[in-house]
Every structure is written in structure tokens, then in C-alpha cells.
Write a protein that binds this DNA or RNA. Structure first.
Lengths: 336, 336
DNA sequence: TCTTCGACTGTAAGCGCATACATTTATCTG
DNA sequence: CAGATAAATGTATGCGCTTACAGTCGAAGA
């Protein structure tokens, strides 16, 4: 890691000016082939890698799109298990319950789409400081609705385009799943088979509100407030006084939590009670019983977010848009 | 997105020099409290967000760590399904087979650890161009073994520290799972219950080689060459002439592929044949039968990679290190 | 009162690149 | 072969920030 070579080093070695070096890298065909080769040789010989900082500064854009996620709550901060000697532990199963955090897929979609547009993707999670730091590094930013204060959002929104995943307003571009209608359709299905329904809501926010609103269009239910975690689903299920005909949950995690408790109590699903979720996470496809849900196209959410950002980068004046992605009701064993 | 304000704007508005603005942001306590407040007010008023590019250029570091993944093979490039009118599709199940790409977890671990060290994480996938681009943007780079040509690796390695996930040599820092001993231990278990074994290898590379070597220490088998994909597991299973007592696969994906075919053929696992995988992906915990495997701590791999990078950033001269993380044999239904 | 010193703040020089503009060289016309 | 035009390259500036270094100013010491 001796001092990294710069355009100047390359230029000198190749016997050209730095402008030519830059041109070889940015617009190769404006440079004579022979010159180009000499420069490229120099690049290889010196191990030259252009500084994205310098380039971004000069060109006034970074070609990076940022993605902000709420913190991982640091359940990962234990010691790293290094291999010790020759011993390999053998066990019957691991306790790990990797709730395939749904934004893995969002992230993958965003990454793929960013790559298609020639952007790199930068991810960060944490608090407000992280957001403004991130904002200084990217050309556009995607954030989950409700994870960043309006104030901060307004602040960074003055510098770069921001797209919000979920929710909708006129301040920013939005991309979200068709929450309300999806839940409404699911509720309609549930209502044909259940008279009494319990609704397990998630943490308050636009998504949760839309789902509840969709549900309310076609059915009524006792509302229990959870927070989208499996644990809260478990808690709510154990606290239920009497069994309704169906338990409709605002997301899959909570529905799985409900299933956990029902199984423990020996209550059969769907015979004794119907259970539904929302999101379409992989775990719901493998649970017992498998989980009826509303599937959101996560990867497409990420892709759409990136598309919206690049579109706004191309035309800052365009009207704010609010994209809604199609969802799909998926009937499985828990509410066939 | 009017032109973004700069230090100059803030300095003027606050009636100080740009150096003072910079100090307020970088080392607040070297500035008198009253001055600091004036500057911070100006920052808020103007919506100032410092440019990471300019800062990185001046400070000669980006505070970003890069993570490179092999391409997503773009199975995502179809049209995005927007909601249309009021119709919601209802189906019995979705075909999607999201193979929880194991590096989701690596990525999450890396992100968490990077955050702990005050770094942002930049992810990119694709080909060589992407790698050198990435290298120009970050202070350190983590790549999966075998995904980047040695030549390119050497090139970028001259500019920034590179840590390789998997494999080991003296050129770079490495972090890998305890592949050989893990597979050896699993093989030992299998060997107690099976006389004839078929070994399904993955794409050639350090990980695959280590696993095979570990296996070979304690057992012998007919080797079938796959490429780590579920599909290749299916192919190999369907091409098998006669059934061995056990099929040991170099990763879980291929093992799942093998299970697919065995189920289709009506061959019972583990009664008729034992099957094992390697990795400990979530899908193996939910398959039928559930999959015996060797569990790698993916998130910790990511975390360790970041730790190695930051350590080298702190001391470029330190000796190259090769960390090995503990694995764990997990016995499940497919080979109890 | 005159120094001396420390706490603050300002001045100015890059960091490594892109690019408008100027200059040189090659190519073409007739 | 002169003159005109196009192609190739060089010169010089600035992108927005950090940071050595150089003041400035008030308080403490002599």
C-alpha cells in the first residue's frame, strides 16, 4: 500500500498529459489508439485505480445510490467463534432463528437495478447521523417509511432525491406495495370462512395503517397492537382470552409467532382457527402449517426505488410520483 | 435540489471562515461554544450536508468498506409488477424459489461490524470492471474467493487492503470457515452408517477443495462434479446409476437438489439413502426431510472480514493473517 | 505595564480528477 | 502545396473539503 498512484503518475509514465489519461478512462475513442495503449500500459504497470472521490468531486456526482435501513439491533455483537484446535462440535440442531429479514430481498433488487443503471449501492443502518453521512456520499437515497425523522428527511431531501419505501405524500417520491387492497382481498377470503376475527396490527406507520384500512373495508375485528416481530405475535396470542375463528396478522413474522403459541397450546390450524400473515417471507412457505399470506414483491420494491431515483436524477423537475406494486394473495394451509 | 450548499455558504452565513465550519463538524471542542452554535444554525438553515467526496479527497480516506459479490445473474430483470386498478390476484402458491443466497447473512454481518467501526458499507456485484470501480471508492475490500481474477486482485490490492472470504495464501488476508475439519467430522459420522458413499462436489475452488480433502481423510467415495447449484444437485442425482448408502454434498443447495430428485423417484431419506449438505442455509432447516449439514457462521464471516480490514488499515505492516471460523455439524433427519 | 502563552480563528495550499478552452498535429481540398 | 478543417492533445481551473501554519486577542505572569 505504498502511496497510491494518481493520474499524474500515469501521465508521466506514459508521457502524456493528465487530461489524456482521464480521457482514456472516460471516453476512450477520443484518444488515438497508440496513445491509449501506452496509457493503459502505464495504468497496469503502476497499479493505478482512479479515486472515486476525486472523480465525484470534479464531476459533481458519485454514481452511488444509498439505501438506509433501521438498525440491526446489534444482536450480532458477540464474540466471533474462531476454530479452536481440531474439535468440531456436533449437535442435533441449532437454535438460530434467522428471520430472513425481508429487506435482504429489497436490497438485492436495489443492487441489481443500481448495477443496471451504472450505480453502486451503499447500505447503512443505524440512526440519524448515519443518514446524513450517507446523504453526503450518494446521488440519491432510499429509506424505509417511518425510519427517519421528517426533519432529517427534509434536510437531506434538499441535497439529493429521496425515495421512501412505503407511505405516500407529496413531499417525496414513494414506492410501496398495494397494502390496502391486498389485505382487503385477503380479509374478504377470511370473512367467508370466519365469523369472529382477531386482527394483530404491527407497529404504527403507513404500512400498518393501510393494511388495517383495507381489512376494515370488508370485515370487523378486535384489534391487538403488536410491533411486527415474531415475539409480539407470540405475546398477543398467549394473551388472547378466547379463540376467534380467525387471526389476521399485519405481517408474516407475527403470524408465525401466533402459530408458535397455537401449536404449543395444541390448537389446530386451520381446523380450530385460521391464521394469515402479510409479506410472503420464505419462512411462511416452510412453516407448519404453511402460511396464507399476501405476497409483496420485495426485490421489485428495491428495483422500483432505484428506478425512481434515477428517473429523478435525470429530471429533477418531474412531478413527485408514488408507485404502487401489485401484491398477490397466496392461500396456503393456515387458511386455505 | 437547488445547488447544494457548501462550506463556503455556511461560513458566509455564519460569518466565519470555512476552516471554522470544518472544525465545528470534525472537532467541535476546538471551537468556542457560541461560534459553534452559530455555525450549526447556519447548517440547519441552509440544509448543509458535507460532501463525502470532497472530504474523502482531502482526508485521503473514504470511511467506506466494499463488499464484492458474484453477479446476481439478473434473473430479476423482468418488468416490475405495478398494481393495476382494483384487482388483486389470488393464488394457491407462488413458484418462487428464493434460495436465500447465503451472502445475505454475510452482508448483514459485514454491515453491522462496519457500522461499529464507523464505516459505511458499499456492495457491488458483477464483473471485473465493477471491482476496480469499487476499489476506487473504498478504504478496504472484501471479496469472495474465486470470484475475482488473481490479476485484478493484485491490481487493486496495491491500492487498498483486500480480504478474501475463503481460501488462504500469503498474498492477502483471509477469513474462512473451518471447511476441511467440518466435512471430515461429518464424513466420520456418515461413515459409521454407510458403506458406499457418493460425493457431490461443487465448483472447483478453495472451499470445495478443502471440503473434499476433509472428507477424504476419513472416507472414500465416487466423486461427482457439480457447481454448487440446486440444479446441479438434481442433475447429478438423476444421472446416478445405482444408489449408494449415502450422498454427501459439498453444499446445501446441491443436497436439496438431490432431495428433490429422490423424492420424485420415491426413494426414502434417510431409510433408503442418507443425504448431507454443507453451509447451514435456512432452507435446509425446513426441507423434508430436514437436512443434516455443517453450519457455517455466515454473519460472523462478514464481521470478521470487516475486522480484518480495519485492523490492516490501522497497521498496514502487520503480517497477513488467515482467520478460520468454527463450524458445527448439525444432525437432522436426512442423516440422523 | 509589557510579555508570554494559550485558546480561537483565519489563510492558503493542496487532495485527484474532469473538462472547457487553447494549441498542436494530421487530414483533406483543389 | 497552401489553406482550411478535423482530430488529438495539452493547459489551466475548480470541484468542496481538511489541515498545517499563521495570525489575533484576552488573560495571566513578571
Amino acid at each position: 500500500m505504498a502511496k497510491a498512484p494518481t493520474v499524474y503518475d500515469v501521465a508521466e509514465y506514459a508521457g502524456v498529459s493528465i487530461a489524456t489519461v482521464s480521457r482514456v478512462l472516460r471516453s476512450p475513442d477520443t484518444v488515438k489508439a497508440a496513445t491509449r495503449e501506452r496509457v493503459l500500459d502505464a495504468v497496469r504497470f503502476l497499479g493505478y485505480v482512479p479515486s472515486a472521490n476525486a472523480r465525484g468531486l470534479a464531476a459533481r456526482r458519485t454514481n452511488v445510490i444509498g439505501l438506509f435501513f433501521p438498525g440491526h439491533d446489534d444482536h450480532h455483537s458477540g464474540a466471533i467463534p474462531f476454530a479452536e484446535g481440531d474439535h468440531i462440535e456436533v449437535g442435533t440442531d441449532d437454535t438460530e432463528d434467522d428471520e430472513n429479514l425481508y429487506y435482504d430481498e429489497v436490497l438485492r433488487g436495489a443492487e441489481a437495478e443500481a448495477a443496471r443503471h451504472g450505480f453502486a449501492l451503499m447500505v447503512a443502518s443505524g440512526d440519524g447521523d448515519v443518514v446524513s453521512d450517507l446523504a453526503g456520499r450518494v446521488d440519491g437515497l432510499a429509506v424505509l417509511a417511518g425510519t427517519v425523522s421528517d426533519e432529517l428527511l427534509a434536510h437531506v431531501g434538499r441535497r439529493i432525491p429521496v425515495v421512501i419505501l412505503g407511505g405516500r405524500d407529496d413531499e417525496f417520491d414513494h414506492v410501496s406495495a398495494n397494502n390496502g387492497p391486498g389485505m382487503r382481498e385477503l380479509a374478504r377470503h377470511v370473512a367467508t370462512k370466519a365469523a369472529t376475527i382477531a386482527y394483530v396490527a404491527g407497529a404504527e406507520g403507513p404500512d400498518d395503517a393501510e393494511r388495517w384500512a383495507g381489512f376494515s373495508e370488508v370485515a370487523t375485528a378486535a384489534l391487538h397492537r403488536g410491533d411486527f416481530t415474531r415475539r409480539s405475535g407470540q405475546r398477543i396470542a398467549s394473551e388472547m382470552r378466547e379463540l376467534p375463528d380467525a387471526i389476521v396478522c399485519a405481517n408474516d413474522q407475527m403470524a408465525l409467532g401466533v402459530l408458535d403459541v397455537l401449536e404449543r397450546l395444541g390448537i389446530r390450524v386451520p381446523e380450530d382457527v385460521l391464521v394469515t400473515g402479510f409479506d410472503g417471507i420464505a419462512a411462511g412457505r416452510h412453516s407448519r402449517p404453511t402460511l396464507t399470506t399476501v405476497h409483496q414483491p420485495m426485490a421489485e420494491l428495491g428495483r422500483a426505488a432505484v428506478q425512481v431515483i434515477t428517473a429523478r436524477l435525470d429530471d429533477p423537475e418531474r412531478q413527485k410520483q408514488s408507485l404502487t406494486l401489485a401484491v398477490r394473495v397466496v392461500l396456503r394451509e393456515s387458511c386455505p
